[in-house]
């Protein structure tokens, strides 16, 4: 069966002459157009990065603007670290960089090569949960669970730093992690439990 084309003769003539005209535009004009484009639309740079996450090395290309949080969640499918505020105010994205707790939403991925990153996914030993993860389950350290990966990463660091001498000290050194459900008492209990071990 013969196929019906909806292109009119007028459309064909218009587009083909426009394309033909484009081919005859002098190189200088095209270069000028490129320059204007480059001026208005800034160049994007893709960086080849080799990052070490949970003792596993990943070679990846990422836009310079990528934060460590986006690299983890979007490129490496490690969605444990959460995007709460994305502005360093809530602590949901807390990970460990070279063993110290840090905010992955305010860390550029480009600054991570050469450092060791640990996320909540790297805490358990196979099927055996980290003592802090177990304590959070036992002490009801969460309700909805969204802030929990950040809370646990921060809690592990809090114990390691030795800031567990009193409830007041634990609260002060956990103040960078907000919990909208208000599971704070359970979180403090979990930390006391692990610190006492």
């Amino acid at each position: 069966m013969k196929q019906e084309y909806n292109f009119s003769r007028r459309f064909f003539l218009k587009t083909s002459s426009a394309l033909g005209a484009l081919a005859f535009i002098p190189k200088g004009v095209k270069a000028f157009y490129e320059e204007v484009k480059n001026f208005i639309v800034p160049k994007k740079e893709q960086l080849p990065l080799t990052v070490s996450i949970n003792k596993k090395s990943y070679a990846i290309k990422a836009d310079t603007r990528t934060t460590l949080l986006d690299l983890l969640r979007e490129d490496l499918n490690l969605t444990g670290a959460k995007k709460g505020c994305d502005h360093g105010q809530c602590g949901a994205c807390t990970v460990h960089i070279d063993g110290e707790r840090a905010l992955s939403c305010l860390t550029l991925a480009a600054m991570v090569p050469g450092k060791e990153v640990t996320t909540i996914e790297g805490l358990a030993n196979g099927d055996k949960l980290h003592p802090m993860q177990e304590a959070f389950i036992e002490c009801d350290g969460f309700q909805c669970g969204y802030c929990t990966p950040g809370q646990i990463m921060s809690a592990v660091a809090c114990v390691k730093e030795g800031h567990t001498k009193s409830v007041a000290e634990i609260k002060e050194f956990m103040s960078g992690n907000l919990c909208r459900c208000g599971a704070y008492n359970g979180i403090v209990e979990s930390i006391q439990k692990v610190a006492a071990k």
Binding site: R101, L106, T107, C158, E161
Partner: peptide, 9 residues
């Protein structure tokens, strides 16, 4: 000032 995470950075 700030939080332990931010002070580390």
């Amino acid at each position: 000032g700030a939080s332990p995470q931010i002070r580390n950075m």
